[in-house]
Nucleic acid binder design. Structure first.
Ligand SMILES: [Zn+2]
Ligand SMILES: [Zn+2]
Ligand SMILES: [Zn+2]
Ligand SMILES: [Zn+2]
Lengths: 140, 140
DNA sequence: TCTCTATTTGCAACTGAGTTGCAAATAAAG
DNA sequence: CTTTATTTGCAACTCAGTTGCAAATAGAGA
């Protein structure tokens, strides 16, 4: 495990006044090192033998969501996907693209995506976009 | 149960060369009568005593999805929501708005929303949008 | 209308992501 | 070093959706 990433994780926890524990540092490090949203299973797999219990992973992710460090991405029906919240505005998260062949998900940080113009009376808290298709690697 | 709706359901099944059975007619009728996407539970609740077994409901919905009569709307993480597919283009489904207070979901058939401009090389099959917020009834 | 068969149904058991309760471990304040 | 509130791990649970299989049946053909 990369030392700098660990330090970054510890700093994040301190900043948010959360207790610095080994499981939390590991979970944050896994998320920091990924460029796409991860499920609990993927986090555990990445951490290997040293992975915390799945309950602990879920509870850690919940603390991080409450602290606005992490959020849940809108990717798949069955499993939650977690990623850093810092790229997104409070109401709009970047779109996610999932390839139906290789099943990989990519964050579309750089595409433009206007907010839907809601009917009168509704207030938007959050807008999420997901796209299914074939990625460039699988098109070849 | 409304006779006209039943006739409509039977006609749909005939048109798609699917066997006309009581469970299928009932499930389609429930969806035809709803203006928002329904879960298996909501379909069963609407049909009451005469509701088919939940396995049958899921299998019926699957047949209808394969026949392009119904599709799954991505509304909530936990449960599938099913609705008529006829309002949507093959690649873009209308957005869904879910109120975080009353937990009701509305279809936004009439708002406009452009397709995300995908990076070169990716091919779009389907784009879905979900919005969380406060509905007009709950804003009052 | 009757017969036959491929399709559909209902049930019970299963799967798998996520949650809960609780006792043991521990971060960090003093 | 002590103390205590917080966090962890485990096992048991929940609940949406799926699977296998025997019984029921739609509808084609006689
Ligand atoms: Zn791919
Ligand atoms: Zn993302
Ligand atoms: Zn509401
Ligand atoms: Zn809809």
């Amino acid at each position: 495990m990369n030392t700098t990433v660990k330090q970054h994780a510890v700093a994040l926890l301190r900043q948010k006044r959360l207790r610095v524990t080994a499981p939390r540092v590991a979970v944050i490090a896994a998320i920091l090192q990924s460029d796409s949203p991860l499920t609990q299973q993927q986090i555990a797999a990445q951490l290997g033998d040293q992975s915390p219990n799945k309950t602990t992973i879920y509870r850690t992710l919940l603390s991080l969501i409450n602290a606005d460090v992490v959020h849940r991405a809108f990717v798949q029906q069955r499993q939650w996907h977690f990623e850093l919240a810092h790229h997104c505005s409070p109401i709009q998260c970047h779109p996610h693209f999932t390839c139906i062949r290789c099943h990989r998900t990519e964050c579309l940080h750089d595409v433009s995506y206007p907010l839907v113009d809601l009917p009168k009376g509704m207030t938007m808290y959050r807008q999420q976009i997901r796209i299914e298709g074939i990625c460039s690697a699988c098109s070849a």
